[in-house]
Amino acid sequence: MSQLFYDAAPNATRVSPEREADRHYPEKSEAVTLFGTCVVDLFFPEAGLDAIRLLEREGVRVHFPQEQSCCGQPAWTSGYRDEAKAVARKQLDILDRSGLPVVVPSGSCAGMFRHHYPALFADEPDTLKRVEALAERTFELTEFLLKVCKVQLADRGAPSRIALHTSCSARREMNTHLHARELLQQLEGVERVDHDHESECCGFGGTFSVRMPEVSGAMVKDKTRSLMDSGAVEMVTADGGCLMNINGSLEKQKQNFRGRHLASFLWERINGASAGEVA
């Protein structure tokens, strides 16, 4: 299948990109930049802080550029390309200043850097080079911990049973849906249970949840139902958007069941209970 073919005409008939080979991971770097993401920034900051702690525990120095804001995804998925591009350009400039690997505690924002920035800047060859370099050095948190840091987690928590929700971006864009599982497997006291229709979307989809609240609401109801029916005592996820969606729905339904960001969960497990309460 690898017959080389190149037709540079913009109106040339397109083929699907070659299948991605398994990602090649670099040696652990001495420092990284954490891109917090706007949802974590405002709604789950302790998860971002726990991500920093987990990275530091691996001997990695963490930079958090104060100029960062949002990756641009909301505008991009809403069809506002120019606005998305302006925001993307800003983040690119900020992240390029240090040129450090970028760790993101959310699959969809990492996917934005890796897969959608190249589409946004396809018409600017010079910027595209920088964008491709950024894509190359962007890692989802679980991926970075597992594959780059080769983290070893010693569980100090009480036995628990949890369900794992994997975001669609992690699953289908980042190919990181198995990484969180592997991390959880390292925790002796934690049993991960499957839930019904596990690979199905939770219904968030960014602005989809407000443009199509009826359909989105039906999806999140089904998702929360299967999570609660799984026998787990709580849910963990490595994606801020899904977490906001699922927890918001559970709260609206007046359920006690809740989800938590994986970073906070891991940090708590390896430190024993109540480790997360800082700030």
Partner: peptide, 14 residues
């Protein structure tokens, strides 16, 4: 018209 300036893709049957 839509294909102006492009070349047909080679046969990649495997």
């Amino acid at each position: 018209d839509s294909l102006a300036g492009t070349t047909p893709r080679p046969d990649e049957f495997d």
